[in-house]
Design a protein around this nucleic acid. Structure first.
Ligand SMILES: [Zn+2]
Ligand SMILES: [Zn+2]
Ligand SMILES: [Zn+2]
Ligand SMILES: [Zn+2]
Lengths: 132, 132
DNA sequence: CTTATAAATGTTATATTATTACATACTGTT
DNA sequence: AACAGTATGTAATAATATAACATTTATAAG
């Protein structure tokens, strides 16, 4: 189980927006959408995003510079993330596969490096886009 | 084996720089370093980078917005990439592990999605940084 | 060789993403 | 009350990436 975090005002506004939206959102799109709530500057958005990523409530989709709400409450807080991304419609979903996460969390090679975190992004065509 | 690509002038200048540098380079750092060779504008750099990524001569480290020469001539041209990244010294190396690549290339879940490409980034501390 | 086509280049301007710096306010603890 | 840690507000700017348009070079076909 995850530790519960009490979100601050800005953090809550921004998390609620991303969570409700359901898909990946870009920082400046978030900014535009929360301006009516009094959040006026990019930095206010980025600070909230940083914190939300840190506590695992959202994840950054690195290849898209976008942020998505965690769809997997049991994932190891931001330390082990995997996503599938449709290159046609840009739909993104978080992969929750215990075999995969176990395999990657235990991965080690002969580099002498100790891995404490990973991010995996799969690309392809989703069901809908495939059948077009 | 990979198909051989003949690089254009700008592509060759930029690939040679990245390859010689050995680690991840950022686009504007590349630009600065090739200005004496006549490449003056960001777009010239980005166009060469796009092409080099496309043909698998370099890869983009998404979490760092940086580009590194492919260290693994047998990797499936830009379709299956894995890196280890030291969060302390920012050293990056390409992971060449046939079991891992086989596992990920064959990965499928019940989403109905057909994966054609992936990128994996491991984070941790390298040997050197661990012992500090 | 000429024509056609695709790929690459040059140049300017601009869009998008993210951080620095500094001042202020809120929250919980001793 | 004093302190430490976290969060906020605001302005300016840095860093990353693309749009638009003109021109040139490479490749292949007729
Ligand atoms: Zn998650
Ligand atoms: Zn799709
Ligand atoms: Zn490679
Ligand atoms: Zn290191």
């Amino acid at each position: 189980m995850q530790k519960e975090h009490i979100l601050s005002k800005n953090q809550k506004i921004i998390f609620d927006l991303i969570d409700k939206f359901g898909g990946p959102m870009k920082a400046y799109s978030i900014l535009f959408n929360v301006q009516k709530k009094g959040i006026k500057a990019p930095l206010q958005v980025y600070r909230a995003l940083d914190k939300l990523v840190e506590i695992g409530k959202i994840h950054k989709i690195e290849s898209r510079n976008a942020f998505i709400a965690c769809q997997n409450s049991s994932c190891q807080v931001s330390k082990a993330t995997a996503f599938s991304i449709c290159e046609s419609c840009e739909n993104v979903s978080e992969i929750s596969n215990s075999k995969l996460s176990k395999y990657l969390s235990n991965f080690s090679d002969n580099s002498g490096m100790k891995y404490s975190k990973y991010n995996l992004e799969f690309f392809g065509l989703c069901k809908k886009c495939k059948s077009k």
